[in-house]
Design a protein around this nucleic acid. Sequence first.
DNA 1: CGATAACTGAAATGCACGTTCCAGTTGATT
DNA 2: AATCAACTGGAACGTGCATTTCAGTTATCG
Lengths: 201, 201
Amino acid sequence: MSTPTEPRRRADAVRNRRLALDAATALLTEPGASLTVEVIAKKAGLGAATVVRAFGGKDALLDAAVSRLLEPVVQHARDLLAETTPTRALRIFLRELIAFQAAHHAINDQLGGLDLPATTALRTDLVGAVEEMIDGARRDGVVRTDIDPAIITTLIGQTALAVARAQPPSQELADAYLTVLLDGLRPALSAAVRDLPPSER
Amino acid sequence: MSTPTEPRRRADAVRNRRLALDAATALLTEPGASLTVEVIAKKAGLGAATVVRAFGGKDALLDAAVSRLLEPVVQHARDLLAETTPTRALRIFLRELIAFQAAHHAINDQLGGLDLPATTALRTDLVGAVEEMIDGARRDGVVRTDIDPAIITTLIGQTALAVARAQPPSQELADAYLTVLLDGLRPALSAAVRDLPPSER
DNA sequence: CGATAACTGAAATGCACGTTCCAGTTGATT
DNA sequence: AATCAACTGGAACGTGCATTTCAGTTATCG
């Protein structure tokens, strides 16, 4: 039994598929972009119908585009876990996550009602990696143990998202978030130290 | 000179205006609500045309509804500033702000593209009050001085918003945010204390 | 080369909205 | 009660969008 009715795939179709994906990816990183099929098509130099058909629908196209952006981030999170201590991994990765969100705010602004299975799967992977980092950092006594790791992970994700939403985007704000978040995640101070007058802390 | 061509206002029009406003307000606090004119109208027991006309447009209706919800929050922020210390005010108000956002996430989810002048004005007032709290708390040595107050205010606002977006809404998450945020906002520890082993802190 | 099936994209379609129209209804004023 | 303008709401309309259609184009294979 040969491969049954595998339809021929023409070279130009493959090329256009890539053009559509590139255009969508580019628009995700542009601040005020509309993310309509027509805009994507214009950016790709194609007709709207072609763009939609290349992936079977707008949702699938954007799912592919977001996944392509997210995939290296997830990979880096896993690499960090393997290469270095959880504490260092957490610190490095937090910076990266915030930078990523700040660069692609359109991802979280305009993709609310869409069905993005691949993206959701990647996000789950990402959450898993961050939870591993937190578990490790807690074992090292660097992250507080009075808050559920899953809650901390959610908190981190939402925080990165919050930075991305800020108007206008600002590196200063991102740094402040990171500072406050990391300081807030330290183990709680003992009452004795906490109540020292500021001058002696 | 009598009031020139002041059109008569019928009692049922006033009543319907209130019904529309009540329905819109109620929908803002419901989790998955659609916030379309038709849904609001059905909830109010009115026709869609009537609902829209009562305020001159959907935007104006929602502006009024959000403002009605936001107004007591702003008022309470001002009262707190007058009644107690900035530090206490900040602590109490943060709780309230998070609770408010968690109860009305629809406000920030579906109102993105709308023009809401009254709401924007109230939000500005709110930001002003929070900045006063932070200024005072900094003078009292309770909030770190190495981050711009305006940045801290933005951070607080975005954080509250982030809690509201979490799925599913959870009191535990809100508490965790508050804890981490407040600890993170404390004055930075001196290097000497920060580098103590955990057991001695 | 043809021949054929894959492919394209402008236009048509379908859908979900907010808004406006207008014939009928109702509250107010006499 | 009689009058009349304010009011109502079902239906029509306009808009912005994703998707589908289809006549024409073009890559691919013999």
